[in-house]
Nucleic acid binder design. Structure first.
Lengths: 139, 139
DNA sequence: CCGAGACGGTTCGTGGTACAAACTAATTAG
DNA sequence: CTAATTAGTTTGTACCACGAACCGTCTCGG
């Protein structure tokens, strides 16, 4: 296989990014998964199940995740009248605040990581990454 | 910040790679962290503490990690005569087999993800990723 | 040389994460 | 109107991670 270098580079890069994410989350006493959840809830008010689908988690895992976030006031459960089985998950102001702050710190961290790259290279990297991402979604 | 796109692209790409890693690990009933450990042990026979440093884990976490891997016959504890406090962690043949297989599957997965990129672009992506990685190590 | 402290690992207690299986309440299908 | 399905919760198990307390083993200063 010629592309061992690519494999290594992408693996290491992913750890770099994930570690940054985890470190920033930890700064606010959040886990990676909680941060991801808040990120989703910034733009959506999904059902438990939809949330689970977004995060790739079992419904029982979602129950616990939402429980803990709710206990900390980051999230609320909203019952629905139409179908009384389903409950929506909604982010609170406090959760939104945390999410925004984490996102900002993360952006800053990535900016620092890529500061040595000239703007053209940054654009190229963005474009290539996006090509890989869209390629992964089509099949 | 102009580079929101870069931030998003790198974050998503990292999840793509990590999910692939986790999925492949899970196929062999391994966790991501166990896979990382085996990957390290392929080329090293470190002390508990060194292993912890490589993985960024507390020594108490390493004890448990090695316990579980040892129970499954992937790893052994090797006492040292020179300093009877330290114990080395050594990969077993079975562990090596699993690590090799996982690495192969991962490489294949990445190859599939990047199959749509022409070779030149793959090389560019590798080079850019490596620039970011080395940049992160120097400070 | 020997006792105080440093060091490497383990153990224990706590809490987050994840799943599967069993369960409840509500809805929908036949 | 009953039977099957669906959304979510609960329970039990296992992993992961940490800090604090602990046990042997070294090492160093006096």
């Amino acid at each position: 296989m010629i592309d061992d270098d690519l494999v290594d580079a992408l693996a290491q890069l992913s750890f770099l990014v994930q570690n940054a994410l985890a470190e920033i989350a930890g700064r606010h006493d959040l886990s990676l998964i909680q941060t991801r959840m808040l990120g989703i809830l910034r733009d959506h008010e999904p059902t438990m199940q939809d949330l689970g689908r977004h995060l790739g988690l079992d419904k029982s895992s979602i129950s616990g995740l939402v429980d803990r976030a709710q206990r900390r006031g980051l999230v609320t459960r909203v019952p629905t009248a139409a179908d009384r089985r389903v409950t929506l998950v909604s982010i609170t102001d406090e959760g939104r605040r945390l999410a925004a702050q984490g996102a900002a710190e993360f952006a800053e961290h990535i900016a620092a990581l890529t500061a040595t790259l000239p703007p053209d290279d940054r654009r190229t990297l963005t474009a290539l990454a996006n090509r890989v991402i869209t390629a992964s979604r089509i099949p």
